[in-house]
Nucleic acid binder design. Structure first.
Lengths: 196, 196
DNA sequence: TTCAAAAACTAATATCCGTTAGTTTTGTGC
DNA sequence: GCACAAAACTAACGGATATTAGTTTTTGAA
């Protein structure tokens, strides 16, 4: 009956994956059922399997798409010849943009990765460890340069990543402030502090 | 066979709740089964119901215990006659202590509250909104005082709360640094920034 | 119009879940 | 050691889950 609509430039599988991201974000991977996903699309659950392999595969697609977007951007930033502070600034702004523009997918990658099956789980965690390792190097570089304070670099990376991740709670306040102003405020806070 | 051991100063129900927090944190509320919880305790699943009402009740106990600990401390800080900066400092340090000392429970309260049934869900969210509202007031006070920069107060609260919440990832690095030094680093970063 | 491929459908399966009922074992105060 | 309460056990139920098999409908190009 109701056919699954492929978006202008995207396969049917991608349309399903996008809907899955929204559902997984709202309900969590385990609590989200294929029946409910099908209902959101306007189709019976078994029909989904004409387009996808399994529920787990949907999660894989979401997590790894997001992971590689972040990885690519990190490489771009790493290769830009500029100060450590400027690199961190760019990276923080990218995280904020991703959080606002691909909210559901980023949320799922951040929270539901633990339901990945092996070997995807290990692969994902390795990628994340690499990402954090490279950010750590960046902060270390800044400390050595005397651009940055001598804050424990691991703690600094954690604080930055956690702060931007926390934008998942910003959805309800989206209209309070422009995206540019939001970026500026967070970068200012994280790099220069809250105290005058 | 294996009886459920009540801890020195705690009921059997509390012993089960503690184990449930660990399991809910590891697997997520939906993916954690009563059978697995029972197995971790060394008992058959139906035996648990001699001590608890339901799976959902375990989640309620965890979430509301944590919520009230935070609420109590916030009131203590609010009533201390001191600067806004000092109040924020105290609050941040309390969050960090909670994160390190009651890791599983705080994690569950932060991540699994969405599986609370009504009316507990609404109640919990109301409490959290109140908490954030009072922190917002605190930041506003600091801005008015000219203790704090004119950063969008809502963004500042979000950044602080997210940064401390991110300590859930610190478990694997616990030995790198003392708890006191961790507190100092994060407070320094959040209040005075990363740049020299 | 035809005909093959794509994609929908219905029916069904095996598994797991939280929980209840009913029974037996264990622990404790006399 | 006896009785009563606490807490364990086994068996089972109703419901939800992801997925498969087999069939029918829809689509689109020749």
């Amino acid at each position: 009956m109701a056919k699954i609509k492929a978006t202008a430039n995207g396969s049917r599988q991608e349309a399903i994956t996008k809907k899955a991201a929204i559902l997984f974000r709202k309900k969590g991977f385990k609590a989200a059922s294929m029946r409910e996903l099908a209902e959101n699309i306007g189709v019976e659950a078994p029909s989904l399997y004409n387009h996808i392999g399994s529920k787990g595969e949907l999660l894989q697609n979401i997590c790894f798409k997001i992971a590689s977007l972040f990885m690519d951007q990190l490489e771009v930033v790493e290769n830009s010849k500029t100060t450590a502070v400027e690199k961190l600034d760019k990276l923080i702004r990218f995280h904020i943009k991703m959080m606002l523009q691909s909210f559901d997918e980023v949320f799922v990658a951040n929270h539901e990765w633990k339901y990945l099956d092996e070997p995807y789980l290990t692969n994902f965690l390795t990628q994340r460890k690499n990402y954090e390792g490279k950010m750590l190097q960046l902060v270390n570089e800044g400390i050595k340069n005397k651009e940055l304070k001598n804050i424990h670099p691991h703690v600094a990376v954690l604080t930055i990543l956690s702060a931007v991740r926390g934008l998942e709670f910003w959805q309800r306040h989206k209209k309070e402030i422009s995206e540019a102003a939001l970026e500026d405020n967070i970068v200012e806070h994280l790099l220069k502090g809250l105290i005058k």
